[in-house]
Amino acid sequence: MIIDLERFTATEKPFWDELERLLKRVEDDPACRLGVEGAARFHYLYQRASAGLARLDGLAAPLEFRRYLESLVARAYGEIHSARDNAHRLVPRTWLLETFPQTFRRYIRQFQLAVLITIVGAVFGAAVLMVAPEEKGMLLPFDHLHGSPTERVAKEEQEAGKRLAGHKATFSSSLMTHNTQVSIACMATGMTWGVGTIILLFYNGVILGAVVLDYLAAGQGVFLAGWLLPHGVIEIPAILIAGQAGLVLATTLIGKGSGLTLVARMRLVWADLTTLIGGVALMLVWAGIVEAFFSQYHEPVLPYSVKIAFGVVELCLLVLFLGRSGRGGKVAKRG
């Protein structure tokens, strides 16, 4: 079959031009609504351009001709067959109080695994410090933790929180950005079939275990609780949730027994991963503020009992929030 290209173009070009104008309109304004008649017309024009492309199929039409029609059909196809989620219509309250805790609970097994890996790391860190205390410098990457806990406690109590005077906001923002980067890395390295996520969780556990043993052995358990609990009860679960997201990514990537293709499996978890990492970022903002403006004050400025009580209340609220919030509400759509 040979078609008369000139006549074909003369007939169809007005429709292609109209389709191009409509496409530009909807592409330039993602919130644009065409209305029922407009949508029907758009669909008709798409089908007409598709039919034109089909007529060219297998014909000796020039490549530019085909490219032009393909580009029109591809753009229209994307518009017609996609149901674009509306991030700008996100309701923050619903997302925070329902979607985030529901998503957390949906992947509770991955969270439990993240906790287990961290505990194993903590036990390992504590054991190494117990067997080889001289390796403390290697185990703990922070200079202020290398010395004697008793000396540090005495120094901090003497300074009465003045060490960070004039730098608290800077310290707080550094904590937020650093911890968020670590959390993103913890999630993203799930792409290494979970190996990267496991290493990061384990290493966090090693540091935590070594610090806890170091302070307990020096008889500074109360200081440790007063120092760590106010921000740690939010910060540590945040890293664990990032690890949970990484493990979700890893199990989706491995996809054992699902029978779905990689893309189909991934489609099911995109929104959940975004929700988890969004929740982690929020938690780390709070933890950063608390660590800079609250955790650094010790006795005699702030009684340890107050700090410990503050941490315990936070932890209870967090457990309630993650465990109960959004129950009975509309279950967030998966994927």
């Binding site: 994307g78 674009r84 989620d85 993103i184 991963l273 975004t274």
Partner: peptide, 23 residues
């Protein structure tokens, strides 16, 4: 950037592909 099935991008796709830059 496009969805590999020729569809429009979802917000979560954009977030995931950008956060995974770290890897």
């Amino acid at each position: 950037v496009m969805d590999e099935q020729g569809l429009k991008l979802q917000f979560s796709q954009v977030v995931i592909r950008n956060l995974l830059r770290i890897v």
